Simulated assay, not measured.
Amino acid sequence: MSRRRTPRPDWVIDRRRLLGHRIADLRRQAELSQEQLANLAGMERRSIQRYENAQRDPQFSDLLLIAHALRVHVSDLLHSEQPHDGV
């Protein structure tokens, strides 16, 4: 697997962190554990954990599966009340 030549900008890291918090908040609102969400989404619990902890960037298809399992639109995962740069 190839590595990035330049590190990701801070604002990208911040948005990944916000996405993780958003997934965790929606999961808790749905009264689901990470294991339950993973099962509903057809994923490994470890993937949910890594996304919530901003350790990995989810693929778009994973976002679709998570949103479907949480019964929200994928844009609800990406929505944030925080101001952001460029996106």
Rank of each mutant, 00 (worst) to 15 (best):
L63W: 05
S47C: 04
R56W: 00
L65W: 01
I23R: 00
N53E: 15
R17K: 15
E35L: 11
R27D: 04
A24P: 03
S80V: 10
S33L: 11
Q34P: 01
A67T: 02
Q34K: 14
S47K: 05
R50P: 05
R45C: 04
S80N: 05
D62S: 15
H68Q: 13
D85H: 13
Q29G: 13
P9F: 05
R22W: 04
V74Y: 03
A41I: 09
D14I: 08
E52I: 09
L19V: 06
R5A: 13
D62E: 14
R17M: 07
H84T: 11
S80G: 08
A38G: 07
E31I: 07
S61C: 06
R27K: 07
H21F: 11
V87I: 08
V72S: 01
R27S: 02
D10H: 02
I48Q: 01
F60P: 03
P9R: 08
H79W: 11
R50Q: 14
H84W: 02
H73M: 08
L18C: 04
Q29W: 04
H68R: 14
L37Q: 00
G20E: 01
E44T: 08
R28S: 12
L63A: 06
S47G: 00
S80P: 00
G20P: 10
E81Y: 03
F60R: 11
S2C: 01
R28W: 08
A69H: 00
R3F: 08
L70R: 02
A41C: 10
D57Q: 13
G20W: 00
Q36V: 09
H79E: 14
H21N: 10
L18Y: 07
V72Y: 00
E35Q: 12
H84R: 13
D14E: 14
I48H: 03
Q55N: 09
S75W: 05
H21E: 14
E52D: 10
L64W: 01
H68W: 03
L77G: 04
L70M: 05
H79K: 12
L37K: 02
E52Y: 04
I13F: 00
R4G: 06
H79V: 06
